[in-house]
């Protein structure tokens, strides 16, 4: 008798033809949740192992990966040199899973601060899949995985505005993270 792996879930059987492309992914919320959690654990383990092997170099590797993604995503939207419009487009690129706002303390009048040939704007990331992944896998914030989002943001802004940018971490918290985006005018 053939050995069968026992499972609680019932196997879904159906027909398949290569030319039939389904309209949606299919499956219920439980399937998505499980898939998301498995991915979170994979990515978390990968980030932790990368740090173990490469040390601080892990941040640079992940940042570069994020930056490349950001540049690719930035190609999809309209180019602009207006910061507000660029932030709007950045919010469309990052989507609801990276819900962010511009932020300023109450004693500051404008969101942007001009410093010579640089413009500085503080961004508060309220929803972040990276943060969720770190919490799922019990990893500290500000690690290599956070650099993926920094790279992604910087890459997208650089692509949209055609300038050089950098992102620094001001503060990380369980519900929101504050970052400073610095835009250097005068080309790449």
């Amino acid at each position: 008798m053939e050995y069968q792996i026992e499972r609680e879930e019932k196997e879904i059987l159906g027909d398949f033809k290569p030319e039939l492309i389904p309209d949606a992914c299919g499956g219920g919320i439980d399937d998505y949740e499980e898939a998301l959690h498995v991915l979170m654990k994979f990515v978390g383990s990968m980030s932790s192992a990368l740090e173990q092997v490469s040390g601080r170099g892990a941040n640079a590797i992940v940042y570069q990966a994020g930056k490349r993604m950001g540049h690719e995503a930035g190609k999809m939207v309209e180019k602009t040199d207006e910061l507000e419009k660029a932030m709007q487009e950045l919010s469309e690129i990052l989507g609801v899973e990276f819900f962010f706002d511009m932020w300023k303390p109450t004693n500051q009048t404008e969101y942007t601060v001009e410093k010579g040939n640089e413009t500085v704007v503080k961004l508060i990331f309220r929803d972040c899949v990276v943060r969720q992944t770190l919490r799922r896998t019990g990893l500290p914030q500000k690690g290599p995985l956070c650099y993926l989002l920094y790279g992604y943001t910087v890459g997208a802004v650089e692509e949209v505005m055609g300038i050089k940018g950098k992102l620094d971490i001001d503060h990380v918290g369980p519900n929101a993270c504050l970052k400073t985006l610095t835009i250097k005018w005068g080309g790449k």
């Binding site: 932020w103 303390p105 109450t106 508060i124 309220r126 503060h171 990380v172 918290g173 369980p174 519900n175 929101a176 993270c177 504050l178």
Partner: peptide, 14 residues
């Protein structure tokens, strides 16, 4: 003292 400056990071909760 500076409620308006709270960005709701909730580090204080943690």
């Amino acid at each position: 003292v500076k409620e308006d400056d709270c960005m709701a990071c909730l580090s204080c909760h943690e």
